[in-house]
Design a protein around this nucleic acid. Structure first.
Lengths: 193, 193
DNA sequence: GTAAAAAATTGATTTGAATCAAGAAAGTTC
DNA sequence: GAACTTTCTTGATTCAAATCAATTTTTTAC
């Protein structure tokens, strides 16, 4: 296993000593998830906290009306989990699906608790990182309500252009909150960009 | 100062020993914020992490197009801050405004850091609580994109009916992502509820 | 209590995305 | 590489919320 990506991620917004990392990495297990498989499922308790070494996944919610809503995409260097479900052992409101064959490493609940209790820098990392996640989600919430569909698409072009080639268009449409037909027309309108 | 609401909140999803709380509460300062005043402002670094003892506030974002988008309302027992800005000392993307005269207690950055470092149960509280916040924001994101305006309004009627009498309608409209005119018509349609 | 300002309601019209309905293109499987 | 499936595109139509505009109601300030 190549742990460098994990260490790099842990050090993004704070220091993380090498010695602590040695201890931390031992708590992980490796896992291969084939394309289309679900890493965890809505209405079930999430048992693992996974980190993406290779591949791409999406987190989504099935609405009562039978539609699907994609909340985010996780790529290399992302955590994918549902902490509320994982920590409190409550049913998740989200599912997570591999969009490609994925190489993950993950912690189970027991090892997560042990790591959080005994590695203060990991505890701090989680606080800082989650603060960042919350800020990003709030911005998304604001953008989703105020931007026009064209603006939303252009934001992706600007912030995550590689998604266009990596992720099926109908999933991007769901992420943007528009129908696939509309996204197709938006792309046509913005083809000059 | 009546610290009971804070202790109750800290104990919502995890234990929090009385002794640790005694130490914790000393780090807070009291503050009165009059109606309409801003607790912190977009594009500035957030200097405090506040807890609402009495009153009601809203967090919102000013878009480049000049519109305003309300993200959430904070009432008694809520934290109001912008952790990403507060922790990393980066400009906030959100503003926070008092909708009523508010009684708050708050931590400055220094005391927050001290508390997080020396009170393990507070560190753990933050991890657990933030996980919950993330889950709620994800659900909101899903709801905002899939629910009809009528469904959104009925969700508020169900989950936070007291908002109807406490919060001006045009702020609720902004929170739901519709115009005030539309919310007025929704209310008319749903008057029988 | 009155005047002024802010918020909410109601109506008429416009607009743009959803929906419905085929087809075309790309990807997968044997 | 042919057959099948999935994804994407394009067109016609519908519909619901935004917008524009005016009035009523409520709140605030003096």
């Amino acid at each position: 296993m190549d742990p460098h990506l994990l260490l790099k991620t842990l050090r993004e917004r704070h220091h993380f000593p090498q010695e602590e990392f040695q201890k931390f990495i031992l708590l992980f297990q490796e896992r291969f998830v084939p394309k289309n498989e679900l890493l965890f499922q809505q209405d079930s308790v999430v048992k693992h906290l996974a980190f993406v070494l290779k591949g791409c996944l999406r987190q989504y919610h099935n609405t009562p009306e039978g539609t699907e809503r994609t909340i985010f995409f996780a790529e290399e260097g992302w955590w994918c989990g549902e902490m509320d479900s994982f920590i409190n052992r409550t049913p998740s409101t989200m599912s997570m699906q591999a969009l490609e064959d994925c190489q993950l490493i993950y912690l189970n609940r027991e090892n997560w608790e042990y790591a959080t209790r005994t590695i203060p820098d990991y505890a701090l990392y989680q606080i800082i990182n989650r603060g960042h996640t919350v800020a990003k989600l709030k911005n998304m919430l604001s953008n989703m309500a105020t931007e026009t569909p064209d603006e939303k698409y252009r934001r992706i072009l600007k912030e995550s252009p590689h998604w266009i080639n990596r992720i099926p268009q109908y999933h991007i449409a769901s992420y943007l909150g528009v129908t696939p037909e509309t996204l197709s027309r938006i792309r046509k309108r913005n083809r000059h960009l």
